[in-house]
Design a protein around this nucleic acid. Structure first.
Lengths: 238, 238
DNA sequence: TGTACATCAGTGAACGCGCGTTCACTGATGTAC
DNA sequence: TGTACATCAGTGAACGCGCGTTCACTGATGTAC
């Protein structure tokens, strides 16, 4: 069957062309002008972050990263101590992205004239941004909070001046300032609020609440901020 | 140096003896009287659960499990579809263990005469048991809530009549019954409370709060139940 | 009570995979004189 | 302005590991007649 055979071989050729084109375009992206890469540390972290975005922390694979960067495996070890350090860098990126999403949400809404209402608006905006990030960019979110190989260094991004924790703290301070939150209840409030929102995110993402359908899910998300607010602002602990 | 050489060889012998003794005792535990194991599915799940206890979900390794059960690798496939199914079985065990710890804590405390105080006591007991389990048996806890390979079947144990979720639900019902919790606030209350406690557990365990030292940690844990209670029982949402 | 036979539950060896890491080596770059 | 030389940042191949899974096969068990 010569006709069939020719048809097949053309199909095969087309497939081969597609594969080659893909390979070449990838090569082109990362083609270097010199023997040295120029900025391997960043390129590697970029590639690894992209993987985390898709597949979570388990997808952060050193060999895949150097492949993507168009460099041999050992080159990574000129800049990184080991795989754990790469993962740590990606984790940092993920935390930064989360904090950025929270800041964006703060800015995106219409500021309210009443400072009390405004501080509440901000509080809810942070919670909503956190939940959205967790559910939409779940790979990064999971990476940001994945179990680290070695204990994390103190003062990591989430705790730094611009991290999620600090953002929440600033809004809570505002709430105290405007009398929404009793100053006596301020200490440690970040942790309680953070726990509530973070817990809901993880239960929905990987936990037993993953099966919660669209509407129930939306309800649960909607409620968690009110729940946290009430938990903070109630006058008399029973 | 003949003396040195002899000393060395005795050391080596002692080491070899230790290794052999360990191997033999392991063999003995699992020595079978017949060609058939008798109860491989349970033995395998037992072994895998033990691994999860120590090393979390990543430690649930099929080959290690069959090794421990004293059986060849392929034997596992007579009873389990694949690795995912084994992990699922272990996850179920972990959830059962968590629920059991919660039930035990409910029973262990002195019941109070006042039904209002009693329902609050139960509420706090559940939270405390959950946190203790998470921090003390962290391997199992992590396994219970690890990301499943395939979506979980609906109606899993945490949602079943005796799972953690149902236990919390029952106590919340009691709180409504005795006027501690407004009935209008009852729907979805499990989720909010669960999220708060679960979130704190995961942040302390693997997250950025892992560095929280003994006293701060205790404070955060102590506060989370009050926080959740206040969030539920406050009269007027601002 | 035997017996043929299907089925169940094992065996030991192997496959293929992809990983993190390391090896000895080399091209490129910067610097002291 | 050259030049020797240390150092930096790559190469390609390999190592060793342990995993999940599958292969062809076999011993043990239950069942119909």
């Amino acid at each position: 069957m010569p006709t069939r055979a020719r048809t097949l071989s053309i199909t095969v050729l087309v497939q081969q062309y597609d594969v080659m084109a893909r390979v070449m375009s990838r090569r082109r992206e990362h083609r270097r002008t010199s023997y040295h890469h120029g900025d391997l540390p960043n390129a590697l972290t970029d590639a690894a972050t992209e993987m985390a975005k898709t597949g979570g922390p388990d997808a952060v694979v050193l060999r895949a990263g150097v492949r993507e960067a168009g460099v041999s495996a050992d080159a990574a070890y000129r800049h990184s101590a080991d795989h754990g350090e790469l993962l740590q860098a990606v984790r940092q990126r993920a935390l930064d992205a989360l904090a950025a999403a929270m800041r964006d949400r703060l800015r995106s809404g219409e500021p309210l004239a009443d400072p009390v209402a405004e501080s509440l608006r901000k509080f809810r905006a942070l919670g909503a941004a956190y939940m959205d990030f967790a559910l939409r960019d779940s790979g990064l979110f999971r990476t940001a909070f994945c179990r680290p190989g070695k204990p994390l260094p103190e003062g990591m991004a989430s705790m730094s001046a611009h991290g999620p924790y600090a953002l929440l703290g600033a809004v809570l301070d505002e709430m105290v300032e405007h009398g929404v939150l009793d100053a006596a209840r301020r200490p440690g409030a970040e942790i309680a609020v953070w726990a509530a929102v973070h817990g809901l995110a993880t239960l929905l993402l990987d936990g037993p609440l993953a099966s919660l359908a669209g509407d129930d899910r939306a309800k649960a998300i909607g409620r968690i901020s009110d729940f946290a607010l009430d938990g903070l602002t109630v006058a008399v602990p029973s």
